[in-house]
Nucleic acid binder design. Sequence first.
DNA 1: ACCTGAACACCGTTCAAGT
DNA 2: ACCTGAACACCGTTCAAGT
Lengths: 229, 229
Amino acid sequence: MAPESTYNRRERPAKPALTREGIVAAAVAVMRAEGVERVTMRRLARELDTGAASLYVYVKDTEELHAAVLDELLAEVELDGAGDWRERLWAVLGSYRSVLFAHPSLARVALVTRLSGPRFLALVEAVLALLDEGGMAPGQAAWAVDVLLLTATAAAVEHGSRRERPGAAREHEVMAESLAGVSSRTHPHIAALGTDLVSGPGPVRARWAFDALLNGALATPRPDPGETR
Amino acid sequence: MAPESTYNRRERPAKPALTREGIVAAAVAVMRAEGVERVTMRRLARELDTGAASLYVYVKDTEELHAAVLDELLAEVELDGAGDWRERLWAVLGSYRSVLFAHPSLARVALVTRLSGPRFLALVEAVLALLDEGGMAPGQAAWAVDVLLLTATAAAVEHGSRRERPGAAREHEVMAESLAGVSSRTHPHIAALGTDLVSGPGPVRARWAFDALLNGALATPRPDPGETR
DNA sequence: ACCTGAACACCGTTCAAGT
DNA sequence: ACCTGAACACCGTTCAAGT
């Protein structure tokens, strides 16, 4: 319990040091193995051979810990690519989405927490650079990056939540059924579109949304700040 | 559900019946008073003078219960308005956002769960009707409604989470600081835009995003389904 | 300053047993 | 068929007490 002598420390070399870095590293390991929902104070404390209370010296709360784990993961986002600026931007956002798809429970964290870690900043910088290359006005780009990342994140949350749970496969069916079962008298537009509302492979829809958003952002000037509304 | 004698019902008028409706009603009440995070099986069971296990006869799990509560809340969304189709659509989405803003924790539910309740269908129908009125091609409208609701929901999640927690006010500062503290050598575009990245009142940004999305959706045809990719 | 055990106040879900 | 208590396997966070 009191490692006064050096040999005592050598006895458990696998145990990470109780530092913020050590805690985050353990958290990443648990997350990769079992998902973020297992990244809890108590579980991490067990992992680090200590009590949950000890972690509060290094980490504000569970949410802050999750945000740190997420930023660590964003290191995997591929920021460099080849081709047209639009294709490269699509690739960057696709890579971001892939990372979140691979860890669906983290996508939730991305939406709820305001990210500000180094990897996230690198991602924002990369997106801004590509929008600049594409000739988007700076003011529009500043606001567009938000919407682009938001939709990518939200798409990952949806997709991820759907895939994660066991009963999720047929939850989509329930949705499709409730759309099909709708009366053309009360819901004429839904009835007219039918399953087209949920049709199409995810990637194709995502690409259309990306193009639509980008086209709109390029063509829509920001409101005059002088206007009261 | 089978009230054989009237006096029996009179004896405990405050206690809702143990039916799906009763459970959902109690859930809505708890949610309004204390937020969805308090809408738990155990808490509801206490409210209904029974054990948590009993609820599983009527409700699949906690998530399904939350979805039911959310649909109940969507009754408050104002679907009819005056003016231009675009202004009316903006009003409908604004009303949807307001409802979620008022109950931030429910916005999270809206993103994670695939909604299919009657109020949600009414909302989708209303949006489709307005897009139709605005002359958007049906195929584009079918996909645009998804993106429009998604961004509104995601915005509510962000805003809501920010306002909800105590330390949230200065979380925005942390973000602003980390943007301001960025080196113009490593992150030139972020540095150039500075606080403009997080600038502007929420509603103005939301309106710009709405217009950009709508303009883009109107101008971006869906990919030819004949194409392999 | 850092670490700890114990405590407080909770969770979701399952299941054998009752009615 | 419906309802129940008890059990299993967990949570986040605080705090007095130790080193």
